[in-house]
Design a binder for these strands. Structure first.
Length: 425
RNA sequence: GGAGAGGUGUCUGAGUGGUUGAAAGAGCCGGUCUCGAAAACCGGUAUCCGCUUUUUGCGGAUCCAGGGUUCGAAUCCCUGCCUCUCCGCCA
């Protein structure tokens, strides 16, 4: 969420930046400012009364000890008169605060100055391309056919056990997943990340912290009996590890990684985009998360981008890095780089990672702060995260790009993790 | 799931209705001492909100959370959450 402070100080600037994100309810900014003024006024009045009440209560204490009960009784009545005045004031105050909070939560994060203008995915800026797009024969198969050919995922059984979008990995397919997870985690460890294996169900407060709630509950699976949400990404539990904490400046940056299954309802998706592994309800992902000093977060973002890029290079996949334009960015992000891998048989780019800086948007909600060594002041940290990497589309791309007459020839880096060089019939 | 105990500051831990934002100790920061360090001694050491033009200062809130009793609550009552111990069930 945005801090009231920045809205108070630079309302016009805030509106301008929100409009870059194609956010259309700019009137919210003025409404928030009006509510904030109201809140301050009511707070002040209510606290004046409270201060008077507190002072009188202390006097009553003294009078009672001195045995002057009738004088104390007189004071008590005075206090009661003050309290009668304070009651309605407090009700108005809490009403105002609630409304203010609700409106504040509707505002998306401000885009960083580096965000290119634009309305949708077509305006995103390709900042880098790498790898080589393979020349496949004309009878090259899309991954859903390769999956059948090598019998590595059983979509029908998955659908029977649960429903469509819940793939059942089998044999070499299951092992390939395990190999990729191990490989990604090992590389993340080498880059200085601490490994976590978090809970897969989270409570409401946790889901609120990273910005899934309110508003996006439709995207998550929910367990009503216990009030838990199935995580849509490891970002949610892992970032929340530091919720309500004040770190020492020297403890930054905090670098965390974790493998989890991810659950997404993906309501409303349909068509060719959802074929095979392109979009599923349950998938595996290795995530990286950083909590950084506010002055270092963009450095960290670049470092994370470079790290993910290395992973794709070693997997020998053709990729490109895309900087998202204002209109295509997520609610919580200040700057996002998407990684796309070219799927040679489908002839299209598939998003396999999204690396974002959230600046203080999440840390304000979660109260993740640090104490400055020099001044002793408490400041909000910045939070970032990215996939390193999401498995299904990586598998789709590996299958399609590395298909040969003799099977799927895996990149060398995976051989030791997979225990073989290729997948064949 | 059943029975009991408990949740206090960075930590340990005192506090059962009236200057208690909270004893004491530890830790941490600064200082004295020292060639330097240790020890000893002295001082400091929560967060959020509001007022004050700034510093200074003032006020309010916070002793798991939310309600309640009271002139006044860390302290009493209710509800919820969590932790620990024992029993049950179970991978």
């Amino acid at each position: 969420m945005l801090s009231l402070q920045i809205i108070r100080q630079q309302p016009e600037q805030v509106k301008h930046k929100l409009s870059i994100k194609k956010f259309s309810f700019l009137h919210l900014v003025d409404e928030i400012l009006a509510l904030d003024d109201e809140r301050k006024k009511l707070t002040h009045e209510s606290e004046q009364l409270q201060a008077a009440i507190n002072a009188m209560s202390k006097e009553i204490g003294k009078l009672m000890q001195a045995g002057k009960t009738d004088k104390a009784q007189q004071k008590k009545e005075e206090v009661n008169a003050h309290k009668a005045k304070q009651g309605p004031l407090r009700d108005r105050l809490s009403e105002t605060e609630k409304l203010l909070e609700e409106k504040l939560l509707l505002l998306p994060n401000l885009p960083s100055d580096k965000v290119p203008p634009g309305d949708s995915a077509k305006d995103n800026v390709v900042v880098k391309e790498g790898g080589k797009i393979p020349e496949l024969p004309s009878d090259a198969l899309p991954h859903w056919d390769l999956i059948k050919k090598y019998d590595i995922i059983d979509f029908e059984s998955g659908a029977r056990i649960t429903g469509s979008g819940f793939p059942l990995f089998k044999g070499k397919g299951a092992k390939l997943q395990r190999a990729l997870i191990s490989y990604f985690l090992e590389e993340n460890l080498k880059a200085g990340y601490t490994e976590y294996s978090p809970p897969l169900l989270v409570n409401e407060t946790t889901a609120f912290g990273t910005g899934q709630l309110p508003d996006k509950e439709g995207q998550m699976y929910f367990v009503p009996a216990d009030g838990f949400y199935l995580i849509p990404t490891a970002e949610v539990p892992i970032t929340n590890i530091y919720r309500d904490m004040i770190l020492k400046e020297t403890e930054l940056p905090v670098k965390m990684t974790g493998y989890t299954p991810c659950f997404r309802r993906e309501a409303g998706s349909f068509g060719a985009d959802v074929r095979g592994l392109n979009r599923v309800h349950q998938f595996d992902k290795v995530e990286i998360v950083q909590i950084t000093h506010p002055d270092k977060s963009y450095e960290a973002l670049e470092e994370m981008v470079a790290h993910v890029e290395r992973l794709l290079q070693t997997l020998e996949l053709p990729y490109r890095i895309v900087k998202l334009c204002g209109g295509d960015m997520s609610f919580a992000s200040a700057l996002t780089y998407d990684f796309e891998v070219y799927s040679a048989a489908q002839k299209k780019w598939l998003e396999v990672s999204s690396v974002s800086n959230f600046e203080t948007f999440q840390t304000l909600r979660m109260k993740i702060r640090f104490k400055e060594t020099d001044t002793g002041k408490t400041r909000l940290a910045h939070s970032l995260n990215g996939s390193a990497l999401a498995l299904p589309r990586i598998i789709a791309a590996l299958l399609e790009n590395h298909q040969t007459e003799n099977g799927i020839v895996l990149p060398e880096i995976l051989h030791s993790y997979f225990g073989d060089e290729k997948i064949s019939t």
